[in-house]
Design a binder for these strands. Structure first.
Lengths: 237, 237
DNA sequence: TTACCCAGCTTGTATATACAAGAATAATGT
DNA sequence: ACATTATTCTTGTATATACAAGCTGGGTAA
């Protein structure tokens, strides 16, 4: 925690964003406004905004102003992109089916992963994502109802759970692991797999300001899906 | 390519690093030196150094100076860490065996991946990484001999291929894909797998200033290995 | 009404200056 | 010889100023 002035301005802005007070595309005070508000020079206020922009948290355009960056671009930092976007990018036909929408008692492993008491009610959804009517990924998700009470009421054919969750409870932290698994019978049925084919499984936990939001499990057939990554040295964006 | 002064200083520094002239931990001219050399103010030179530092390319310490960051920290950006380090971090016993060290004629798919003519000689190595004497990962790698002529002479029980390659030909770009596969017989033998177990496969191509350096294939049993990722929102380092 | 220009906001670049703080070396005193 | 101090170089923070460039909205002229 820097006691430097520019650093305090940064944490102030971050606090507003993380608490949800400043949503996506919300306008951030201008350099001059911040300079007045915090009684610093414009260059100092500018530094705070610039560093947040470099970190991908704000977007600024000359002549217009500074705005909170969309979390969509943030999620690309997760290296695990929105599957709906990926499919649409390939110009394929995307569709989605919700096969489970329920509230259940959390068993021990789920309760631990969500940081709640075992036996508490948690939301449980299973979605199947299709590319050209062929199942591409199963998304099983457990959500903490205290943080996102209206989760089950959403229409997930319109908005993906990840999109909805980042809007309602801006994420501050995410952990994910990738592994290769053998799918069980239920999973094979959902994915239309007849012979046991290795699957790629991504497990992701996301935190918001108020706690663990959700615990997700994304399973895709190894023959149909792969994660991609790209890095250029010394360039950003 | 910005024509801005600070941007030109940045590209100048990046050019030195990418060409290999300024290796790891090499000292970068100080703010005042750069200011003189490029006939700009110290603040402008400072901006170039600061932005490169934020991007993880330089490290600076007050009172000491600015230095080229180690590529080890860069490779963490790849989200795929050095397996030797991972094992050692778990306080396990790490060992490595080279089962193939040869120069072969590149077949079409390999030649294309390496950007050379089919039929050219390319280096081919297969290493097996062990954790507590149990095979953890097979690393198959094809290397362009024109860029790294002394590749086969290295002792890969001492230095990993990735470490050696980044030293000899600093990487400017990397692409990798992750997928779940069923290992073939040869792979099962190397990994000591009796029943066909799903494996996690990472394919990575790395570029340097002068072209495609290597094409690597990292295969691990799904039950023993997983990739991990971590993201905090609004913090760096 | 429509098209145009301009004033006023925004961010972007660049400079000169000042002082603080960390790290290494040189000079000094015991 | 050793420990301490002082100097000097480095990066870090902060300010005031200037001009450039992009966007918006309002006013003016056709």
């Amino acid at each position: 925690m820097g006691t430097a002035k520019y650093s305090e301005i940064k944490t102030h802005i971050l606090t507003q964003i993380r608490s949800g007070q400043w949503p996506e595309n919300h306008r951030v005070p201008s350099e001059n406004q911040l300079a007045q508000e915090f009684a610093v020079s414009r260059m100092t206020a500018r530094r705070a905004l610039s560093e947040l922009t470099d970190a991908g948290i704000l977007t600024r355009t000359q002549g217009l102003g500074s705005f909170v960056a969309s979390f969509k671009s943030q999620s690309s930092l997760l290296e695990i992109r929105n599957i709906a976007d990926e499919v649409k990018e390939r110009k394929s036909n995307y569709s989605c089916a919700a096969v489970v929408l329920e509230s259940i008692e959390a068993l021990a492993p789920i309760a631990i992963a969500l940081g709640v008491e075992p036996g508490t009610q948690v939301y449980h959804t299973v979605l199947v994502h299709f590319e050209n009517d062929a199942p591409l990924q199963v998304e099983e998700r457990f959500v903490n109802p205290k943080l996102v009470p209206e989760y089950l009421q959403q229409d997930f054919t319109e908005i993906t759970p990840h999109e909805y969750l980042t809007q309602v409870a801006p994420l501050t932290e995410a952990r994910h692991t990738v592994e290769a698994i053998t799918p069980n019978a239920q999973m094979c049925a959902w994915l239309n797999l007849y012979n046991e084919e290795p699957c790629l499984q991504v497990i992701r936990r996301t935190w918001s300001e108020r706690g663990i939001v959700s615990f997700a499990r994304l399973v895709s057939p190894g023959s149909k899906y792969r994660l991609g990554g790209h890095l250029t040295f010394g360039k950003r964006g």
